[in-house]
Simulated assay, not measured.
Amino acid sequence: MRGTTVITGADGYLGRQLAAALLADGDDDLVLAVRADDSSELAAKKERLDQRLGPQARSRTRVVAADLSRDDALADIDTRSVTRIVHAAAVTRFNVERDLAQRVNVDGTARLRAFAARCDNLQRLAMLSTLYAAGRRRGDVHEERLDDVGFVNHYEWSKWAAEEEVLGAAGELPVSVLRLPTLVADDDGGQVTQYNAFHNTLKLFYYGLLSLLPGDGATPLSLATASFTASAVTRLLDPAIADGVYHICPDPADTATLDQLVDTAFTVFERDPGFQRRGLMRPLPCDQESFEDLLSAADLLRGGPINQSLSSVSPFAHQLYLPKTFRNDALRAAWPGYTAPDPLALAETTCLRLIESKWGRRTQETP
């Protein structure tokens, strides 16, 4: 039956992917909620979404301004027509400030939950979270509500707190929390249009700006593509799928370790003539105590290249000393026969595309 799906953060990296996937899979109308300060910014974002989704989508989409820092953010949406909500709006920087993370990621989710409670025909409220809402845990992490065990950065804390806002409504609302891995490419071809800590760290290694490798080499790192993630979210929005917590990630047995990923990256780098000319060595492993000492020393050199390099890595690097395995039994049961990208093949193709594009600079320079 045709309904209406609301996507918050619809102009974001994953929001756009989800909108395209939902238009291709089903016949729901889509309300694309974006943050816009005025009518001109809203018009510009609508134009970009039209270009991304194609003119054929206009009959099924409506773009609305929605600043979730305001209580009336979704007042323009008819609650009677809403059947599904995908909450993709968030600040996703690992170095996000605490107050901003509270205001956008936590308080914004609370406002969205209040809006969802007014939607009488709601079939699913799905919040996109992160695997690292698990915080400082080690070992197996299951698809369940998690206790506060401490966090590496404010981003992780805010996503856990946002999960609490949503899961606190379980039993009253049809809620799901979908924890996502690190998205390293748009698709299996390795194209990158959104850069994050994974790409920035590889850039530091490639240009010789970071010679140490923080972390336990046996730490599993769950990587995926935006296309795989959008397909998984689309599957889990099906009303026939049970509510709950899902880890959208490869099976534990198919998850690469830090050592494997670094070895794959440098195998690609070492075939590149530019990298060969620099004569750079592979990074040296660095234990946690030594890394902490390095951060303390770099902090005394504010504005220097060492401090700048480490500041882009440190907000997440502490996770690399906390090996954990993300179980995805609920995902596998809900999506029989699913296939996640091969992590080492994905890392290889992504590194190749990063070198070809010079981390996006060559693409930007192309007329």
Rank of each mutant, 00 (worst) to 15 (best):
A240E: 10
E163V: 08
G304D: 13
A197Y: 15
A24Q: 12
Q288C: 07
V31K: 04
V64S: 09
R278Y: 05
D67M: 02
T4I: 08
R277E: 14
Q319T: 13
G171H: 14
L346V: 10
G244P: 11
R137H: 07
R145D: 07
D78G: 08
I77P: 01
D272K: 14
L100G: 01
V192K: 05
N196D: 07
L173C: 09
V63D: 00
W335V: 10
L178I: 04
K203P: 01
T366I: 08
A117L: 07
L223G: 00
A89V: 09
A57I: 11
D120G: 08
A89M: 00
H318W: 13
D71C: 07
E292F: 11
P343F: 07
D251R: 07
E270F: 11
D37V: 12
L294T: 04
T5A: 04
F94W: 15
A170I: 01
N153S: 03
V96M: 02
G244N: 07
H199T: 05
L30T: 00
D254G: 06
Q56W: 14
A347R: 02
A298M: 08
R282L: 05
R353K: 12
N328I: 10
C249L: 04
R137K: 12
L128F: 08
L210I: 09
S357R: 04
L212H: 06
A226Y: 03
K159Q: 02
D11G: 09
V245G: 00
Y13Q: 02
E144N: 11
L49Y: 06
P315E: 08
G274C: 05
D186V: 05
L125D: 01
Q194F: 11
L202R: 06
P181W: 01
A230R: 01
T363F: 10
A185K: 00
L322I: 05
G217I: 08
P367C: 12
A90K: 02
L352C: 13
K324W: 09
Y155F: 13
D299V: 08
L202S: 01
L284G: 06
H247S: 05
Y338F: 12
I248F: 06
S211K: 09
P341H: 10
G304S: 12
V64Y: 10
F316Y: 10
Y321R: 03
L213G: 00
G12M: 02
L173T: 03
Q102N: 12
C249S: 12
R93E: 15
P305D: 13
P55T: 05
Y13N: 04
S158Y: 04
S296T: 14
D25Q: 14
P315C: 05
E348N: 06
T61K: 01
A21I: 04
E143K: 04
N196C: 09
G208D: 10
D293R: 13
T229G: 06
S311V: 09
S314V: 12
G274D: 15
W160A: 00
M1R: 08
A345W: 09
N95L: 15
R80K: 11
E172V: 10
D243G: 02
G9A: 06
T255E: 07
M1H: 04
P336V: 14
